[in-house]
Design a binder for these strands. Structure first.
Lengths: 348, 348
DNA sequence: TTGTACGCGTTATCAC
DNA sequence: GTGATAACGCGTACAA
């Protein structure tokens, strides 16, 4: 076992001073050709790499981005991480990921841990519990210490910082519009209760789409899941008691539950009822029938968040810069769950 | 903006020396009750937290674990991360995650970056490309510097370190045995080519199970996917030309493709053909029919890996300790894809 | 009881 | 052209 090589060791070995070694390795003109070559050769031979920790301490920069997420076993967040990673690495930044498991306490703990010197800034999506509590002191704290934050997905209006959000309302409108376009007239929605911000926005999009098409909103066609642990039962009950020819569900879980309930009732998708889902993940692609979805472009969201954060980190006088909220557009991906043979010919 | 509080600032403010502050905060008996209380009150009031970077430099310990994974958009790896996270946090460790995207170069880069002081040790699953190249110099390098590594899932026999692996062969046997138990006599397997270590082991399990049940192995019932990008076509072709009443597929992707192909052929699952899949993820749970699976217990794998690593990190004289390879048992989770009403009564 | 000095690994500055 | 010194923030052995 050979412990990591340091400047000091090189200096001792080559019988020069530490600062000479440091300068030589950084190609300083102060150092003579001869010694520079000698030192660099030695360093290369023994594979010298500067110690990041020491550099961080000296520069008061870690070149590390802290990511705090509600969960990770989730296609959307996983793709967002991918986007962040890519941009971060391209700029020579590292990434620390912490998971709050939707717990307020764990979110606070994670942020405090990372804020004590481990990272230069944060990219985060707040935990569900935090959103309910409406306690954001850990965010304001970090910001007041001069560390920039970029919020994404579940953003908090009260917090003043950069944000990357999905145009949920517009995405929902797209979904519903598609159902209407292919001939549905009784479109239901499976969504969340209103305190989940994205659920609320998607519900609004659903309503807007109907209104813009001159249709009236029937509350019987709206299911707001109260208890996520029993969403299957709620959906089953809803499907059994509601007459529909189109369903828009705000996530893959609800979509597949709805299809399952429809099948149990003897109703076929897409023949009898069309389905569009928010969130495009593995499940949508591989389900039978494969799901038409609203793609949230997680990679792009992560990439933009990372770009915004790094920009602020590298800009000396970023304090003056306005905070921006970037809206990422969704897109509709058509698959089997909205295939409709009957009228497809009329489209050709 | 108030920059982070340091010991020095507290000292200046309270007109004592830095070391007095340091000692007081660490409840040293050297410091008088009076000054101790005063300093602690001040620190608490202004929310003093020691700087992790400085501590890391001083202690030559980061209390951070580096995780390097081939990919992250994958239920299995996501659950493993969850397991690691939980154990790590419990022991006061942080976690840095890097993704190699199955690229050898990126894996090497990530490891070098983290090895330069950012982490105390590694938990990693090697990239596919690395496995093909059989170039593991970055692993030996890190180990020779005294940083412990725990390999999991895709492990490397040549590397001497702690390992956590799944009993792939035994898992495959369980899957096939289940199919045989419920009455299948023509069980096919959809697997990978042999150079993917886990694929090979699972294929061996399939063969062993058949042999132990006195059945002969028919190569026509074995499909080894050559090209992952065209697995769907290969599976479709296989299903169409093969007479089966049971299918064991080595991952969720293959399983769902197989079911899709069966449906297209007019064959029903589970009525006509039963299906068991390796890997228990969201897809298996929500698919129609839901899939009977071999659960790899990702959380447990991550937890064990983290425990092994931390144990070695905290043990002063861990050099002498033998390296262990821990085998995590899989378990069968029965769902709809192997439901069989006919003989279920005989089981009661 | 409190303060001084030193070291962790690095770089910037200034002196020689 | 080279080297000594200070500093980043912290903890601790030792001195006062």
């Amino acid at each position: 076992m050979k412990p990591k090589l340091t400047l000091k060791q090189i200096a001792r070995e080559l019988d020069v001073s530490v600062s000479t070694v440091s300068k030589a390795l950084r190609d300083s003109v102060e150092i003579s050709e001869e010694t520079r070559v000698k030192i660099k050769a030695f360093a290369k031979l023994y594979n010298y790499k500067p110690n990041n920790i020491a550099l961080s301490l000296k520069n008061r920069k870690t070149r590390t981005i802290g990511i705090v997420l509600p969960e990770i076993v989730h296609d959307f967040f996983a793709t967002v991480i991918g986007g962040i990673e890519e941009v971060a690495n391209k700029h020579g930044y590292n990434v620390i990921i912490c998971v709050s498991n939707n717990s307020f306490d764990k979110e606070v703990m994670n942020m405090e841990m990372l804020a004590n010197g481990s990272t230069d800034g944060f990219i985060l999506s707040v935990a569900k519990e935090t959103q309910q509590k409406e306690d954001y002191h850990h965010l304001t704290e970090v910001i007041s210490q001069g560390m920039p934050i970029v919020l994404f997905d579940r953003v908090v209006d009260q917090i003043v910082c950069d944000k990357v959000i999905i145009d949920d309302t517009e995405g929902a409108k797209k979904a519903v519009q598609h159902l209407l376009d292919i001939g549905c007239s009784k479109v239901g929605i499976v969504t969340t209760v209103d305190y989940v911000s994205v659920g609320k926005l998607r519900t609004e999009g659903y309503i807007e789409a109907l209104r813009e098409n001159g249709m009236e909103v029937n509350n019987d066609l709206i299911l707001k899941i109260e208890d996520m642990d029993h969403s299957d039962e709620e959906i089953m009950n809803f499907i059994n008691t509601t007459d529909l020819d189109g369903v828009f569900a705000v996530n893959e879980q609800f979509s597949t539950s709805a299809i399952k309930a429809l099948y149990k009732k003897g109703i076929k998708v897409p023949e009898d009822v069309k389905v569009v889902s928010f969130s495009d993940g593995e499940l949508s692609r591989r389900f039978l029938p494969s799901l038409t979805t609203i793609n949230q472009h997680g990679t792009e969201i992560g990439a933009r968040a990372a770009e915004m954060l790094i920009e602020r980190l590298e800009d000396q006088n970023s304090n003056g810069k306005m905070f921006r909220t970037e809206m990422i557009k969704t897109s509709l991906i058509e698959r089997e769950s909205t295939k409709c043979k009957k009228i497809s010919s009329s489209y050709i």
